[in-house]
Design a binder for these strands. Structure first.
Length: 288
DNA sequence: CATGAGCGA
């Protein structure tokens, strides 16, 4: 075929140079100077412009090395670290930062739709005490306690049972006398005997298990993993030395059910964990 | 060996 016999030296893009020959060979060769000690690199090349005049083009660039020199040594070092997480998929150097796509599930202190509790609270009760704004973050109750004093804070999940009497009664009772504006603990309120005892739940410190002889790198998630199979765990805690930030080698695990705690003690006391023999026993209640 | 942080109107 005729096409095949044609010299392949011309590509279609070059055909538009209708003024004839490619004269580039008349130009001086391209020169590359540097990069010098400052990282400056110069490229000098020559071209013909539209009018056929010879033009010198100088391109000056600063290399990556110099850009890095303006960063700290540590930052430069980090660039050579292997990528991890989402960045593994990325081209090296394509981005400096990644936005994590990890999903974080937030727990609700109480289930959706249980807002009738709030409806039970008499707004006047807090008003009479002088615009009380206490809202417990654990159980969501207003006016009784702060989160840190919540009687339910060690419970795995808030149950329907913890709705005690609406505070309307004490709201009305408190102002009768000089106690106006003072806090009345639930146990001393009118009609409190009704909710004392079986109905009233206190913090579950009786189900608190002390774990000693933990290795230094045992953390709370490890304890959770270890104890969770025995039943619902309401809290894990590993004592941390405030000065060194290191584990003090003991911790606590609170179970919702005492039976589960007892089974965990039976099984895990003397259990080899991380090259150490765990000691697991009932914790004596914390001194306040 | 050994018994927990935090705490505000």
């Amino acid at each position: 075929m005729a096409i095949q016999n044609e010299p392949a030296k011309l590509r279609w893009g070059e055909l538009e140079e209708d003024d004839g020959e490619d004269l580039d060979f008349l130009l001086p060769p391209r020169q590359i100077i540097g990069p010098d000690e400052n990282g400056i690199k110069k490229v000098i090349e020559y071209q013909f412009d539209d009018d056929g005049n010879k033009v010198k083009i100088t391109t000056t660039t600063r290399t990556r090395k110099l850009a890095n020199a303006r960063l700290s040594k540590r930052a430069v070092e980090r660039r050579s670290w292997p990528k991890f997480g989402d960045a593994v998929q990325e081209d090296v150097g394509a981005r400096l930062t990644m936005v994590s796509t990890e999903e974080i599930v937030l727990e609700r202190p109480k289930p959706l739709g249980s807002s009738k509790e709030d409806a039970n609270i008499d707004p006047l009760a807090s008003f009479n005490k002088g615009a009380v704004l206490m809202v417990c973050r654990t159980c969501g109750k207003k006016g009784d306690h702060w989160t840190s004093r919540c009687p339910y804070k060690d419970l795995a999940q808030p149950s329907e049972g913890f709705v005690d009497k609406p505070p309307t009664a004490d709201g009305a009772a408190a102002p009768a006398g000089s106690t106006k504006g003072t806090y009345v603990p639930p146990s001393l309120r009118e009609g409190a005997s009704r909710t004392q005892g079986s109905d009233m739940r206190r913090r579950n410190d009786e189900n608190s298990v002390r774990v000693t002889n933990l290795s230094e790198d045992t953390r709370e998630p490890d304890l959770m993993e270890l104890f969770r199979p025995f039943g619902a765990v309401s809290r894990v805690y590993v004592a941390i030395d405030q000065k060194t930030g290191m584990s003090r080698g003991f911790g606590f695990v609170n179970f919702v059910s005492r039976e589960d705690a007892q089974r965990a003690i039976n099984k895990l006391n003397g259990y080899g964990y991380d090259n150490l023999i765990l000691r697991v026993e009932w914790a004596t209640p914390r001194t306040t």
